[in-house]
């Protein structure tokens, strides 16, 4: 006998008689040999319908009827209104999605191929709070100390010397080229910083000379000259930062000198061993 028929013998009572005859005819070699003891035991202990009737004490329940408990019917579908003229107005929709309504393949999530650099989120070191004195490490003013005014959304720092002390103008610099010291000046009272954003410092491109002018080879290199607007802003911010330095009281004189002097190492001084 095959496995399938065994199962049927076990589970389907109605077909029992037929299979039991089959079983007697064939004998139970296969199942005993296979060692599927449970199935074999069941077959061996197979009782007639009458014996099962008594064994199960079915007489207890004969002629008795238990009242059916009515379960509240769960809704399977919902009627939804459909707008539009030729759409029939209504549609019955299954609450649970049928299998056929699922897509056969995974959906491909599309995302923008590139995030613009200007959209990046900027993180600054904790030490780079507005008002800290920083040591500049690169650029024209390297070695000088300056005051950090603002962290710009482009990821750059807005600094000023102040210009009257050490010649560092209002300027942007990348935080990698800066050492933050623990010296601080309270610049919370400085006004007019809002207008000094990235747009303010954007470079103005010089227009190309037309070919007709005949001055292609004699193109002059233009030297940077600060505009009147910048000069005015520098003056304004300098005045306020100097006042902020004065507010340090005991250290005001030292701080002025500190900002005036260049940074440098003496012998046997190593930046990784020092506190700034």
């Amino acid at each position: 006998m095959e496995e399938g028929t065994w199962n049927e013998v076990v589970w389907c009572r109605d077909t029992f008689v037929i299979f039991i005859s089959d079983f007697r005819r064939d004998g139970c070699h296969s199942c005993q040999e296979a060692g599927s003891s449970q199935k074999a035991r069941r077959l061996r202990c197979w009782f007639s319908r009458t014996r099962m009737y008594h064994k199960k004490a079915l007489w207890k329940f004969m002629g008795k009827k238990t009242a059916k408990t009515e379960k509240p019917k769960k809704k399977i579908t919902v009627e939804k209104e459909i707008k539009g003229d030729k759409n029939g107005g209504k549609r019955t929709v299954y609450l649970k999605k049928r299998t056929k309504s699922y897509p056969t393949s995974n959906r491909v999530n599309r995302h923008p191929s590139k995030k613009c650099f200007s959209d990046h989120r900027r993180k600054f070191r904790k030490s780079l709070q507005p008002g800290t004195v920083v040591i500049l490490l690169a650029g024209l003013h390297k070695g000088k100390r300056a005051i950090l005014l603002k962290n710009l959304p482009s990821g750059l720092l807005l600094i000023t010397g102040p210009f009257t002390l050490n010649g560092v103008p209002l300027r942007r610099i990348h935080p990698n080229f800066v050492i933050a010291t623990s010296a601080k000046v309270n610049i919370s009272k400085i006004k007019g910083l809002k207008s000094l954003d990235d747009k303010y410092f954007k470079r103005v491109k010089a227009k190309r000379a037309k070919k007709d002018d005949g001055e292609i080879f004699a193109a002059k290199k233009e030297v940077y000259k600060p505009s009147e607007q910048r000069k005015a802003d520098q003056k304004n911010i300098d005045k306020q930062t100097l006042k902020a330095i004065q507010r340090l009281k005991g250290d005001a004189c030292h701080m002025r000198k500190y900002l005036c002097t260049m940074f440098g190492f003496r012998s046997s001084q190593y930046p990784h061993r020092m506190k700034f």
Binding site: I135, S182, H254, K275
Partner: peptide, 14 residues
């Protein structure tokens, strides 16, 4: 000396 900050070092030098 190891705990001096940059500003402290400047003040000491001056």
């Amino acid at each position: 000396r190891a705990e001096l900050t940059d500003f402290d070092r400047f003040k000491l030098n001056s």
